[in-house]
Simulated assay, not measured.
Amino acid sequence: MDDESQHKRTLLVRESIVGFLGFLSFLAVVQAVINVMQPQPKVWPAVLALVLVIAAVSAWRWHRSH
């Protein structure tokens, strides 16, 4: 492979990672909000949402910096 196609492939992989983490973060935040509406809310959905949002933002910043 030449450098141009390798660069495009690397960008596509990075964008896929950011998109995957963003989608999972969205689902986790929705689940955490639904969980708050329950009579006995649990802590783990909020913690999972926090971890995934931090991972998504970190991946997005990493992608933008390269």
Rank of each mutant, 00 (worst) to 15 (best):
Q31M: 03
V43F: 12
R9K: 10
W62A: 03
H66T: 05
S5Q: 13
S58Q: 07
P41I: 10
R9V: 07
L52H: 07
V51H: 07
D3C: 09
V33D: 06
V36N: 05
R61S: 06
M1R: 15
V57Q: 01
S58T: 10
W60M: 02
A56R: 03
L27S: 08
W62S: 05
L50Q: 10
A55F: 01
L52R: 03
F26S: 11
S5P: 03
V53M: 07
A55R: 00
S16C: 09
R9S: 13
L11Y: 15
L21N: 04
L48C: 08
Q6H: 14
W62D: 09
A56M: 05
Q31L: 01
Q40N: 12
S25V: 05
I54L: 06
I34Y: 02
S65C: 06
M37V: 06
Q38H: 09
D2G: 15
F26R: 13
M1K: 15
G22K: 05
V43D: 13
R64G: 04
F23H: 15
E4T: 11
R64T: 04
F20L: 05
L27P: 01
R9A: 13
L11S: 13
V47C: 08
S58W: 12
I17S: 07
V30L: 08
A46Y: 07
I34L: 04
L12P: 00
N35W: 03
S58P: 03
D2K: 02
L11D: 14
V29E: 13
N35H: 05
A59G: 00
L27R: 05
A32W: 00
V51I: 12
W44M: 00
L11Q: 15
N35C: 00
P45Y: 15
R14D: 03
P39R: 14
H63C: 00
R14A: 04
W60T: 00
I34M: 00
W44A: 03
K8C: 06
W60L: 02
A59K: 02
N35K: 03
W62Y: 14
V33K: 03
V29P: 04
V36R: 01
T10W: 15
V18A: 04
A59E: 02
A32D: 00
V30N: 02
V36G: 04
